[in-house]
Amino acid sequence: MQRALIIKHVHFEGPGAIATWLDRQGITWEVIEARQVTRWPSPDDFDWLFVMGGPMSARDDGKLPWMREEKRLIRQAIEADRKVVGICLGAQLIASVLGADIHRNSAPEIGWFTITPAPTCPPDIASMFADSPPVLHWHGEGFSLPKGARHLFSSVACTQQGFLLEDRVMGLQCHLECDMETLKGLCEHCADEIVPGTWVDPPHKLMVSEAILVATHQRLYRLLNRLANPPGDNPPVP
């Protein structure tokens, strides 16, 4: 039986729909909170690693010892050929481990804005997002594309919305996993970030229906299914 380790950074940003997908796949899973870990696991303890979001910066490893340890585990998991998935901060942490630049965006992106497949996005993934769906964003920082990775998606406010490396390492800047509990938690605990801006939705637009969240989850499940059963070698990135 496969095992998954989920690292979260704040109590209100848990696995969301990822947990549902894992249960459906028969994959056992465990959640740890990075700031409370006293003994970090090793890649021998899991087959999948999920790294969730949080309000801190992926550049904070110089002052946060736990983040240095977390990055070490992410690096070890990638080197051990594990499936590694990062969401928002998690994607930035993975990108940082892979040598990419982490930077402050010109403007925060908080709300339901569309993403579009990038030119190098694999065709089967591009077809999943060909309708340029609105998805939830909640971030002020971004990342450059890691070397050797395929650029998956972009939005008007943020060029790098996702990447895929070797069909087993994926970073998503947006929150496809977000369920109603997570959405309410973000709106409550990160309310100070919801300030008027070009790419910031007001609270009443952030809170969407359960049906919209479920539709977003279906896209996440298709991406995770692809990681679980990759289509084979992709041609090299130009």
Rank of each mutant, 00 (worst) to 15 (best):
M1G: 11
R3F: 08
I7S: 07
I7V: 15
H9W: 09
V10I: 13
H11L: 09
G14H: 00
G14F: 02
G14N: 00
G16D: 01
G16N: 00
A17D: 04
W21R: 00
R24E: 15
I27K: 05
I27E: 01
I27R: 05
T28P: 01
T28H: 11
V31F: 03
E33D: 13
A34L: 13
A34G: 14
A34W: 12
R35G: 09
V37S: 14
P41F: 14
P43Q: 01
D44R: 02
D45L: 09
L49G: 06
V51D: 03
V51Y: 10
M52V: 07
P55V: 03
S57Q: 02
S57E: 03
A58L: 11
R59A: 14
D60G: 11
K63W: 07
L64D: 11
M67I: 12
E70C: 08
K71N: 12
R72N: 04
L73F: 06
R75T: 07
D81T: 09
R82L: 02
R82A: 01
K83G: 06
V84M: 07
I87L: 10
G90R: 08
A91R: 01
A91V: 04
L93H: 06
L93D: 10
I94P: 03
V97N: 06
V97K: 03
G99T: 03
A100F: 04
D101E: 12
I102W: 03
H103Y: 15
R104A: 14
N105V: 11
I110H: 02
G111R: 14
A118E: 14
P119D: 06
C121W: 04
D124F: 05
A126Y: 09
A126N: 05
A130M: 02
A130V: 06
D131L: 05
D131W: 08
P133N: 10
P134K: 00
V135N: 05
H139W: 04
H139N: 08
G140K: 00
F143Y: 14
F143T: 05
S144N: 12
L145E: 01
F153E: 01
S155W: 07
T159K: 15
G162P: 11
G162K: 05
L164C: 11
L164I: 11
E166Q: 14
M170R: 01
G171N: 04
G171K: 06
L172V: 05
C174Y: 04
H175F: 09
H175T: 08
D179P: 13
M180Y: 07
E181Q: 14
E181T: 14
E181M: 06
G185C: 08
G185Y: 05
H189S: 13
C190E: 14
A191Q: 09
A191K: 13
V195T: 15
G197E: 09
W199Y: 15
V200R: 00
P202A: 08
H204N: 10
K205V: 00
M207A: 11
V208N: 01
V208R: 13
I212E: 15
V214K: 13
H217K: 12
L220F: 07
L227N: 06
A228N: 12
G232F: 07
N234V: 03
N234Q: 12
N234M: 04
P236K: 03
P236T: 03
P238H: 01
